[in-house]
Structure formats: structure tokens, C-alpha cells
Design a binder for these strands. Structure first.
Lengths: 101, 101
DNA sequence: ATTTCTAATCGCAAATATACGATTAGTATT
DNA sequence: AATACTAATCGTATATTTGCGATTAGAAAT
């Protein structure tokens, strides 16, 4: 049998943990989350003011954090307010905590 | 002034955390670390037996984990014994713990 | 309906990551 | 010196990520 990645079956915990870790694997996203945590919530525009990065790039990072479930967006027209997703944050905390002992 | 990534200055903690997180951002590497932790140490060959992945690919993952400082290799000719780098592991634990509260 | 504003998405280019097989390097042992 | 064994590295192909500017979408307010 050919030795190929297609045969791997990962444990669900490993997949979840890797997904969270991947989302945390960029310094900009770490600092976005730190900022978010400090302010409890914020708008995309706030981040554009704080970070010397293009608006589209920030939007992309937010999308990744959202996809990983670490943040959530709430419509506050004409803006969107982003907050930390506490439920998944807690899930991540538990996973990392258990993994790192 | 042009809004470009070159102007970003990251906090050292964010860089460290992102580096660890990036290394953890792949399920194979998570499971390698889990295995390593269970056995306390292991050889590359053990992993090749356990995971249905090419030897070169495993070696690559080990290299990344080593670069991130999460593991360390010890010459045990003709093999190399890999162990978790407890010092950096602890550092990562503290960083994640503080970050995730 | 039109305007205004914010944030997402598109399109592109460049850099990284992931996987593989093949080869090389390094270290005993013979 | 030659052999045997393990693990790293090379070379390559493909996929994903990261960044940007430009455009589009969505929701209020006029």
C-alpha cells in the first residue's frame, strides 16, 4: 500500500487544536485578538486605524479568525462589531491547556 | 504615508506566541507531539511506522517543531532520539495560558 | 431613488507550506 | 576502507497564505 497522507485519520481533538493554532499562527492575528480582548469588542475601522495594514488585509485576518470560531461579528450598521467568541475561546483554552498540560 | 506591512512592529510576545502556534497549526505535528509526550521520547523511525506518511515528510515536520523550539534531537547513532524541549514547552504553556487567560 | 459610509470580496502577485521520491550525509560496525 | 543503517536534505509539484489596490455589497439616512 502506498504511503500517502490520504490514509491518515486524525483524532478530532488534534484537528480542532491545529485549527485554532493555525488561526493564532500569525502575529497580526495575535495582536488583533489582544486588542479585541482589551476593548472587549471593536469595529474593523478601529483596527485599520491601529495597524498600519491595508483594510482588505485586516478584513482577511478577521475572516480567518471568524472561520476558526475565535471571534464573531455583529451587525451594527453601518459598521460591524467584532467580539471574541467566548464559547470557542473557552474550548480553545481547554484544548491548549490539556495539550500543554 | 503608505499603509504597508513593513511598518508593523510586533510585540515580542506576539511573535513568540505566533511562532509556537504556527508550529502547532498542523494536525500531523499535533499528533507527533502527543506521541512524543506519551513515549517521552522517540526516534524518527517510530513515527514513520506509526503515521502513514513518507519519511521525508515526517522529517520536515520534525524540523519545523525543532525550529520552533518545541522538540530537541539527541544523537543516538545510528538513530536520533527526539524529546520534547521542556523549557520551551513551559514557555509556550505560559504564553498560551496568559493569552487565553 | 440617491447618497454615504463601512467592510467584504475580487483579482493578482509573491511567498510559504505541504507532500512525495530520490539522493546525500553521518555514524557505527565490520 | 567498505558496509549498513537512520534521518536529513534536495528537487519538484501543488496548494495555501499573505499582501495590496480596486471594486462591490449592504444598510441607513437623505
Amino acid at each position: 500500500m502506498k504511503r500517502t497522507i490520504e490514509n491518515i485519520e486524525y483524532k478530532q481533538n488534534s484537528l480542532d487544536l491545529a485549527l485554532f493554532a493555525k488561526a493564532l499562527g500569525h502575529p497580526t492575528r495575535i495582536e488583533i485578538l489582544k486588542y479585541l480582548d482589551n476593548q472587549s469588542c471593536c469595529f474593523t475601522g478601529d483596527l485599520v486605524d491601529v495597524f498600519p495594514i491595508a483594510q482588505s488585509t485586516i478584513s482577511q485576518h478577521l475572516k480567518e479568525l471568524k472561520n476558526a470560531g475565535l471571534i464573531q461579528g455583529e451587525l451594527k450598521p453601518p459598521k460591524i462589531r467584532y467580539c471574541i467568541n467566548k464559547e470557542n475561546w473557552e474550548k480553545a483554552r481547554l484544548l491548549f491547556d490539556e495539550f500543554l498540560q
